[in-house]
Every structure is written in structure tokens, then in C-alpha cells.
Amino acid sequence: MERDLAKTTKYFGITRPTLIKLMREKGLLNDKKLPAYPHRDREYLSIKNGQWWHPDFGMQYSQSTRVQQAGLRWLAEQLGLEMPEIPATPDRRDVA
């Protein structure tokens, strides 16, 4: 499962600008908010390529950073963030 930076900030309980600032300070993001080392960090961060048609300007292209599921713990370690407690899900098979 991939998360964009906005969903990742909700997971850590911080704002998007704060996450971007921390990632840039650690050298994880470049000036375009994309992974600075996409090959090295490919297990944790990825780039999503998007495209859409604009009636006046033709085909438009975009790129955005995605955080992989394994990247959440890695990112917390890199940036010194707290990992939130994940509540235990009750087992449906438990019957009183």
C-alpha cells in the first residue's frame, strides 16, 4: 500500500509542510518534492507518474512522492518521529 505525503502526515500527526521540511533537511527529497535517491530508497519511497488532458494546453504530466508501507517505520527512524500505536483489531472468531 502506498500513501501520498498528505496521508503520511496524518499517520504521524504532523503537517505536510513540516514533513517536507524534515525530509529535505535529511536529504530525502529534492527541490521538486521527489525522492532525492529514488534507486537507493526504492523500498521506502516511490514516484507516481500521472497525466491528464487539459483542453487548452493538451496533455499534462505530473509526478508525486509516495511512501510505501515499509517506508513508514523507516521514515520515522530517519526523521526521529514517533510511530503511532496501532489498535488491535478484535478477532471475529472470538465469541463469548
Rank of each mutant, 00 (worst) to 15 (best):
W52C: 02
W52R: 13
L34W: 04
K48Q: 12
A70M: 13
D56L: 13
G58R: 08
L79G: 08
G58K: 07
E77Q: 12
P87L: 02
P35C: 08
V95Y: 10
Q60V: 11
T9Y: 06
L29T: 03
A76E: 11
R73D: 11
K21D: 03
D4P: 04
S64N: 06
F57N: 02
L19V: 05
R40P: 00
Y44V: 04
V67Y: 07
W53E: 11
E85C: 00
S64T: 12
T8C: 14
Q78H: 07
E85S: 06
V95L: 07
A76Q: 12
T8G: 12
Y44H: 11
L28Q: 09
T65Q: 04
E43R: 08
R16I: 07
R73M: 09
L45C: 11
L22Y: 12
N30R: 14
G58A: 05
M1E: 14
R3E: 11
V67S: 07
P55E: 02
P84R: 04
K21V: 00
L5K: 02
R92D: 08
R40F: 05
K26G: 11
K33M: 06
H39M: 03
V95C: 00
I14V: 13
D4F: 09
R92G: 06
D4G: 07
L19E: 08
M83Y: 10
R66P: 09
P90Q: 05
R92L: 14
Y37K: 15
L5E: 01
R66W: 14
F57L: 09
H39A: 05
D94I: 14
A96F: 15
